[in-house]
Amino acid sequence: MSSMPEFEYKRPETLKELFDLLPGYESGAAILAGGTDLMPRIKRGLEKPGLVVDIKDIEGLSYVEDKGEKVKIGALTTIFDIRNNTLIKDKYPALHEAATLTASENIQLRGSIGGNILQNTRCLYYNKSEAWRDSFKPCLKNGGDICNAAKGGKRCFSVYRGDLAPALMSLGASVCIVSENGEKETALEDIFTGDGVTPFSLSRDELIKNVIIPSAKMKGGYGKFRMRKAVDYPSVNVAISMDTGGKGRLVVGSVGAKPFMYEFSSLEELKEIPERAYKDVSPINNMSLSPYYRKNMVRVLAEELIRRV
């Protein structure tokens, strides 16, 4: 048992109720969906919200809908439902495969697409209890001004290790962000700041309402390099989606604070991407496998996936 900081808990039933709640808490509110990312963070003292708002009872946030030009996926749609959705399986193989390979089946049943996208970045020196972190000075991500993983590092090297976001980015997805002031649609890649300290540009009073994917059927796939065949976050992940004209995107994840996205408009261009990605990424020693190896695996995994797709 690890003792959790105290907080209030609310379970609004409408978005309006939610937005009424958020500003009232000075120490911040945390939005709780499946909780598979948030709760361990709270338990380890990485997040100290004054209020936890459980949005699971908010009506109408769980769906996969074909809206003609676009397919919309409600933020509370579980990873499991995405994995089993025939429309997604048929149109967006990269997303289907990413959902299938996420964590374990029980986590898929609990975790939502919105929460999975907005999962925080991770680091071997960061996702630990307060007592463990006592052996170190506070790092950049934890209110300090140093990086414990890269000595002398001036920025945070924590890594975004989500499964779904790279697949969605490859599909050209955008997200509908809702706040008290209304809704706005933003390209998924634009919500990533690239800064490990605050990986997302969303403010505390905004949440993802749904994910929007262009409706055209895409060829593609998802490759996940992980040590075990379940539970694990990706060590490196790659998603590719392309339309019938051979135009599309390749996205590499788990090598930085945000996924690396590459557009291509022909097979020739696509084939050049693995080498480019390999040169672009510079992982450091802050997760299980050596950075040199992970860097190499970017190219290998991308090439393997291109061959397969």
Partner: peptide, 12 residues
């Protein structure tokens, strides 16, 4: 922890 110290899962 069990994410960083890995033991085999049923899929392994």
């Amino acid at each position: 922890n069990l994410l960083e110290y890995r033991v085999p899962t049923a899929n392994d």
